[in-house]
Design a protein around this nucleic acid. Structure first.
Lengths: 318, 318
DNA sequence: ATCATGTGATTGATAAAATCGATTGTTCGG
DNA sequence: CCGAACAATCGATTTTATCAATCACATGAT
C-alpha cells in the first residue's frame, strides 16, 4: 500500500506556492509558520524527494518535481473538495450562491422573468449573474469562475453537460414602411433582397442568423462584409428603424418589448427552420449537477408554450 | 475552509464498496473492523450526510449519494496516488514494472531487438508485454491496465501522448515467379492488377495497406471483399507464397526474416508515400511521463538509419 | 420460543500525529 | 560587523487513529 500525501500537507504546499513565503503561507492556512514548515518537511520526507531548492539563500524556489507535485496537488485537492461539495449540495439542495453566465442576446430579455421565477422556486439560491459572449462564458465556466451558463445550443465544448430548454424562433425585423412589411410572412429567399444589419463578431447570434439566411440562397462573404453591424440587439433594432437594413431578431427579444416605440415591425419567416435552441450548461461532474438539472427543469417554464411543445416533439438538436 | 475527507476514510469507503462487508473490507485495509466502522462513521459525520442505508437488516447498502461519493473518492485517491507515483518515478527513474502493449504487426518483429536494448539501457525496468490490436490496447491503456503502448500512428485518442519513433516502409510481397517480381520496383498503380492478401479486420495494418493501394487508383469495396484475409503476417506471407495473391509487408517484418524459406520476394513500391509511422503512446498526465519520453528517445535507436533520418527531416505525421 | 451466529456499532486505552510557542541557525543588506 | 528577516528545529500539548474487547440487533436453525 502506497503512503498517500495528506490533504493538509498539500494545502500547505499550495499556499507556499502561492505566497512563496512560509510565514505568509502559514497565516493564509491559519497555522503557525512552524506547523507549515513541518508539514512541508513531512511531505518531502514521506515522498522521499525534495520539493524545494534550499541551496540559494532563503528564497522559496521549487524544484522541477516540486512544480509537478504542485500541479497534481491542485487536481487532487479539487477532487477532494468536490466530495465535500457534492455532500453539501445533497444535504441542502438549491442553496447558496450560484454563478450564472448568460449571453447578451438572451440575458436582458429573459432575466426579468428568470430572476423572480428562481426567487419563487428556490428562495435559498443566491444568483450571481455575469453577462458575456459564449466564448468567454465557456472559459469562465471551465476555469471554475462560473457554475452554470445559459446559451444558444449546440455548444461544442467537451466536458460540458447541456440541456436544451426551448426554441427561440427568429423573426424578421423591418421598418413599418418597408416593402416586405406588406407580406403576412416572408420566405427565406427574400431576406437577401435588402441589406442586413448584423451583430458584431463574437455574438453567436450573428453566426446563427447568417446561417438562417444562407439556407435561402447562396449568400457570400461580400454581402456580409458590406452589412452594417450593431453592438447589441437594441442598437440593431434602432438601425433597422433608421432604414439601414433589415434584421433577424430572436422572438425572445421581441416578446420582451424590444420594438416598443421604434417603428419597426416583425414578420415571421417561412421556407426553412429559423430558430435557435436555448440551453443550460455546466461542467460535467460538477458537484451540483443535480441542482442544475432541477434548475433546467424549472427554466423550461419560461418557454413560450408553443416553443416548448416543438422541442418536446422533436428533441433532436440542430 | 472546507473540511476535506481524509484519504484513509475514502480508502475504507472504497474497500467497503468493494466487499460490501465491514469485516472483510477492514482486513483488506489491514485494520480492524472497528477502525473501519469508525472511519466510515467519521466520514459521514464530517460530511454530515448518510452514505449507507442502515434501515434494512445489516446488509451494506449505499445511498445514492454514497454511490456518488464512492465514484468521486476513486478519482480523488487516484489523484493522490499519482502524486506518490510521480515522486517515486522521479526518485528512481526507469525502475520497476512497465506494462508495455504492442500490436501484432510490430511485436514479433521488434521485441527481439527491443527487449535486449531495454535490458542494457534500463536494467531496473521489468517489462511486462501484452500483444493485442490497437483498439484493445487503447482500452487497456486508458483503464490503467497498461502503462505504455507501441503502435502505428496517427492514433486518434484523446488523453494520449504519443511520440513518433520511426517510419516503417511498406514493400510489395510477391511469389518469386510472379510477373511483378521481374520489375526492380513496382508503381502503386499496378498493385491492383492482382488479387491482394490482407490481414483480418481489426489490424490497423489492414487499413493502412488499403489506404496505400487506394492512392494508386480507385479501388472499391468489391475488390476488398473478394480479397483473401490472413490472421497474421506470417500466414499472409505463406498465402502469397501459395499464389493466392500479392501483399504489402512492413519492412520491419521483412528485416526480421519473415520471408525466409517461403519463396516470396519483395519489391519496393514507387509512386507515392508507402510507409507507416510507429510511435510510442501513454496516458497524458501519467506519473511516469518522463520515463516514457526517455524510453521513446531510446527506442529511436531501433529504427533503421534511413527511416529515422526521414522522420527527422519531415516530422509531420500523416 | 430459544439460542447460536453473524453483523455492524460502541467503548476505553494506547500510540501516533499535528500543532503551537519559543528558539536556533542562516542569509542578506546596510 | 550588526540587525532584520526567515526558515528550521525543539519540547509540550492536544487531537486523532487504531486496537481489543464488548455490545446490540438481526437472522435462521432447532
Amino acid at each position: 500500500m502506497v503512503i498517500l500525501p495528506s490533504p493538509q500537507q498539500l494545502r500547505y504546499l499550495l499556499a507556499l506556492a502561492e505566497w512563496r513565503h512560509f510565514g505568509r503561507a502559514a497565516s493564509a492556512c491559519a497555522v503557525t509558520q512552524s506547523t507549515l514548515s513541518a508539514g512541508i518537511l513531512a511531505l518531502e520526507r514521506q515522498l522521499d524527494v525534495s520539493l524545494l531548492d534550499r541551496e540559494v539563500g532563503k528564497r522559496v524556489v521549487f524544484t522541477l518535481l516540486g512544480e509537478e507535485v504542485i500541479r497534481r496537488a491542485r487536481v487532487a485537492l479539487e477532487a477532494l473538495e468536490a466530495i465535500s461539495h457534492v455532500a453539501q449540495a445533497s444535504r441542502e439542495p438549491m442553496t447558496g450562491p450560484m454563478r450564472l453566465g448568460v449571453i447578451p442576446t438572451i440575458g436582458p430579455f429573459i432575466l426579468p422573468r428568470l430572476i423572480p421565477l428562481i426567487r419563487e422556486w428556490f428562495p435559498q439560491i443566491r444568483l450571481i449573474i455575469t453577462e458575456d459572449m459564449t466564448e468567454r462564458l465557456l472559459e469562465k465556466l471551465t476555469t471554475g469562475r462560473l457554475d452554470v451558463i445559459l446559451l444558444a445550443m449546440p455548444c461544442i465544448c467537451e466536458g460540458l453537460e447541456t440541456v436544451p430548454l426551448w426554441r427561440d424562433p427568429f423573426v424578421l425585423a423591418v421598418p413599418k414602411s418597408d416593402a416586405l412589411a406588406k407580406l403576412p410572412s416572408v420566405p427565406l429567399e427574400r431576406l437577401t433582397e435588402e441589406p442586413m444589419v448584423l451583430l458584431e463578431d463574437g455574438h453567436c447570434l450573428r453566426e446563427q442568423t447568417v446561417a438562417v439566411c444562407r439556407q435561402g440562397r447562396d449568400w457570400g462573404g461580400s454581402e456580409l462584409e458590406s452589412a452594417h453591424t450593431a453592438s447589441s440587439l437594441h442598437t440593431l433594432v434602432r438601425m433597422v428603424g433608421e432604414g439601414l437594413g433589415i434584421g433577424l431578431l430572436p422572438g425572445l427579444a421581441v416578446d420582451s418589448g424590444i420594438l416598443e416605440g421604434t417603428g419597426v415591425i416583425t414578420r415571421p419567416v417561412t421556407g426553412g427552420p429559423a430558430w435557435r435552441t436555448i440551453g443550460l450548461g455546466w461542467r460535467m461532474r460538477s458537484p451540483r449537477t443535480e441542482d442544475f438539472r432541477a434548475l433546467a427543469h424549472t427554466l423550461k417554464k419560461l418557454a413560450p408554450a408553443e416553443a416548448e411543445a416543438a422541442l418536446r416533439e422533436d428533441p433532436v438538436e440542430v
